[in-house]
Design a protein around this nucleic acid. Sequence first.
DNA 1: GTCAATAATCTTGTATACAATAACTCTGAT
DNA 2: ATCAGAGTTATTGTATACAAGATTATTGAC
Lengths: 215, 215
Amino acid sequence: MDIRRADQIADTLEQLVFAGEFQDGDRLDELKLAEQFHVSRTPIREALQVLVTSGMAEQIPRRGVFIRQPGPVELLEMFETMAEIEAVCGRLAATRMSDQELDALADANDRCQQAIQASDHDRYYSENETFHQIIYRGAANSFLEKQAKQLQNRLRAYRRIQLRFRGRLRQSMSEHSEILQFLRDGDADNTARALRGHVAVQGEKFHQLMASLKR
Amino acid sequence: MDIRRADQIADTLEQLVFAGEFQDGDRLDELKLAEQFHVSRTPIREALQVLVTSGMAEQIPRRGVFIRQPGPVELLEMFETMAEIEAVCGRLAATRMSDQELDALADANDRCQQAIQASDHDRYYSENETFHQIIYRGAANSFLEKQAKQLQNRLRAYRRIQLRFRGRLRQSMSEHSEILQFLRDGDADNTARALRGHVAVQGEKFHQLMASLKR
DNA sequence: GTCAATAATCTTGTATACAATAACTCTGAT
DNA sequence: ATCAGAGTTATTGTATACAAGATTATTGAC
């Protein structure tokens, strides 16, 4: 619903970057992009500013803007940060979530389970994100919630990869149930611990995957 | 060291916003700013994009960009988030900081103490930030470190206000010493707890101040 | 053949021009 | 006096123009 062409282009470019259409270090050529989007350089430049500010690209004055895909080390750091932020959300949510929100969480969990039984991976990814977002919301801190969603968004592509590990889906579901129970009990510490582990293992799985690919 | 005028302007505007030169809802007039900075609208617009992307201003298409100062509720949320992020940094730092880093932390703490004895508030603020930044660094996660620094930066102005509370400086120092000791002991849980409290109390003090001003 | 230096080309950053929409003003009717 | 509506002015968003620095190509010396 953006009126500004520049905003639409920024969104599209963001999607393309997340989708891995660009390699790390690729230069975003203003003229080529302008041609591609059928606009002048002006809206392209404004879109590039957005990418740079949000950390997805780097700007070198008089040289251009270059996309910056996180390397293995940065990805691990991001997963660790995500794990800790989720743990924080869980800790707060344990004492703040309403019964309604807990029911919504249980529903989301059920839908995850259904998606697995239907072998509908896309739907599982989607419902899984919903499950976690309900917890962010449950922390009753919209600033924190925004931060969590932002990071979740940035890690989406990599989360998908690691979820393909054999047996991971089943284990992930059992962790979900455990988390749900801790939240129901209002057990802040255990919720935090469970969520931290639940997300941190994703980083570890990803690490394993990277290591196995290197060989 | 920016070559781009637009970047310099973005920095300046950011400073001005943090310094409270603008009221919430103020429109940033492109023409006036262009005149003020002796440039055309182009670099101004690129600077405004940066402010909008980093959340300091809101853009309404075809209407302009309006600065968004956080209200009391959002500030409390930001302080709470800061407290939790610092706690996370502390938890990780407890098992990851080198002896060198611990010594640097002790030095920073000493300099805080000296600044207080010299009644040099500006220097205290500065050294205090250093103290905390060493802990962020100690978490050995540069992504997390960047996030922490960013939030620290956004809350700077408000932290200054609340530190004026009577007796707060002394108490703050004793908390620092406690945190340092927990880090030395490698006690992750207690470091996290102490840091969370240390920062959370800032939010509470700020809240008290707001409430007293409302009357 | 390789390297350095200079010229030509490209690309970025800023300024200006123009089109479209929003805000404002002024008039006239009730 | 108040409100509606047309016309005017302002402001945004995009396109184009131009200047300056970066990149590439070319030429010439060794």
